[in-house]
Amino acid sequence: MSAIFKREFGSYFSSPVGYAVLAAYMFFSGIFFYVQCLFLGSSSMTMVFQQMFFIVLFVIPLITMRTFSEEKRQKTEQALLTAPVGVPSIVGAKFLSSLAMFALCLCSYLIEGIALSFMTQPDWSVIIGNVFAMAILGSSFIAMGLFISSLTESAIVAAIVSFVLNVLISIMDTISGTVSWDVLTGITNAISFQKKYNNFSLGLISLSDVVFFVSVTFIFLFLTDRVIERRRWA
């Protein structure tokens, strides 16, 4: 499992993808930080985290798009699946390497926090809490991205589909405002990522929201495992 993790994580930096993702994420995080904190003279990074939500939607499909689709296209999955490794550890290793890549992106907040600390006393508990919140939000999106990637042979298709899915799930509460049927409103509210994430960014970390994101992650990792396992029987 560690071998797959290392190879996968290394592959982000043997192609431009890793650098591009990192640069894009840090660029936007830097802009929002400049506007919200430096320009407006605030020591609270809450708004930065809220605005970064949409950047996460874009960035994660780029991190996950190649995970399984590329293996299939290059036929390297044959090596993985005929090695003495179970499918769950393959999926797990790929998930962890994507999460590690995303964690690198999250380092930008620490840099910004340090920058703030030269001028004022930043609220580290809010920053750490938000980084944690973004990490578990990210892990749900990553699991979804892996699942989409396992369905197709094309990295581009995987990126587009997971991006659409991410946006759709995130704007659920906007949609729920327009339907009058209570049941549907309830459902859309229940699966809206943004509402739960915004609670986090305000510093409200509730167990039920954490459980929600963790469950979504596990459900999609399980589905990915099933997709790969099932292909052998097709």
Binding site: R7, S11, S14, S15, Q74, K75, T76, E77, Q78, A79, L80, T82
Partner: peptide, 15 residues
């Protein structure tokens, strides 16, 4: 116990 060379060798091009 198996060493397998598939029809298309499973190589990672970037390594």
């Amino acid at each position: 116990r198996i060493g397998y060379l598939p029809e298309q060798p499973p190589l990672y091009n970037d390594m």
